[in-house]
Write a protein that binds this DNA or RNA. Structure first.
Lengths: 130, 130
DNA sequence: CTGTATCCTCCGGGATACTG
DNA sequence: CAGTATCCCGGAGGATACAG
């Protein structure tokens, strides 16, 4: 989770600072290397711990647990334990999480529209600066 | 900038993995403690270096420079130098940046709608776990 | 005024081993 | 199966000083 501005981050005037704060709230929830992946992986029904571990390539058991706990803490995931043996645990996205998932669509759209332009800008910049 | 999955991050099936990747592209552009603040501060016309330094509370000169360079490199900001003495430098948001700025609106909306629910979930979780 | 250059700290996250 | 517990490392970012 990136260290962010908790106090009034931008001091323009009017509503810009609160806008910044609000956006930052979301980003803090979604920051971290794995949160988005988990959100997406749980967006279509309950998923078990090991399923997640397998579907999210490269995640360590530790980070999977930690990220799940954070998402659960924020009310984005529900953790249900079946007291069987061996144990079974299911994680389910809440409505709030699903709404977030949809809100990310406009960002996805932005990235798709401008991905090549951004790559080009990057190339140009890098070629110029050396 | 948070360390993220560059390879296929989520292996569900169909388009979920590409969706994840695309979202992550944006987040990488916007991650870092200060990028959003700068985006917002430059969203309403050219701003000078020192103006930014003053309006974005708590930012160090180093991070201001670094973040500005990254945003410029991605084509989100244009840096214009007036060869006067003392020097004057203006940063202007590009159209791409402005579009991004607007796309963030749905996230802001999400945060506003659920902020209290999230806070409540957090409280409940913390009270339960001890 | 607009930056660079260094040094240093903190913490997100990986690797590995152990457990109910 | 679903986690904890430790140890460790790299890099984001702060503080400070210097410069064109």
């Amino acid at each position: 989770m990136v260290q962010r501005n908790t106090d009034v981050s931008v001091q323009v005037s009017g509503s810009h600072d609160t806008a910044a704060c609000t956006v930052i709230e979301v980003l803090d929830r979604v920051s971290g290397k794995w949160a988005i992946g988990i959100l997406i992986a749980t967006a279509h029904g309950p998923v078990r711990f090991t399923e997640l571990e397998r579907s999210i390539k490269g995640i360590s058991r530790r980070m999977l647990t930690l990220t799940l706990r954070n998402l659960e803490r924020d009310g984005l995931l529900v953790r249900k334990v079946y007291p069987t043996v061996p144990p079974k645990v299911e994680y389910t996205a809440t409505d709030i999480a699903l709404e977030l998932y949809e809100s990310l669509a406009s960002l996805t759209s932005w990235a798709e529209r401008h991905r090549t332009a951004i790559a080009a800008a990057r190339d140009a910049y890098d070629r110029a600066e050396r």
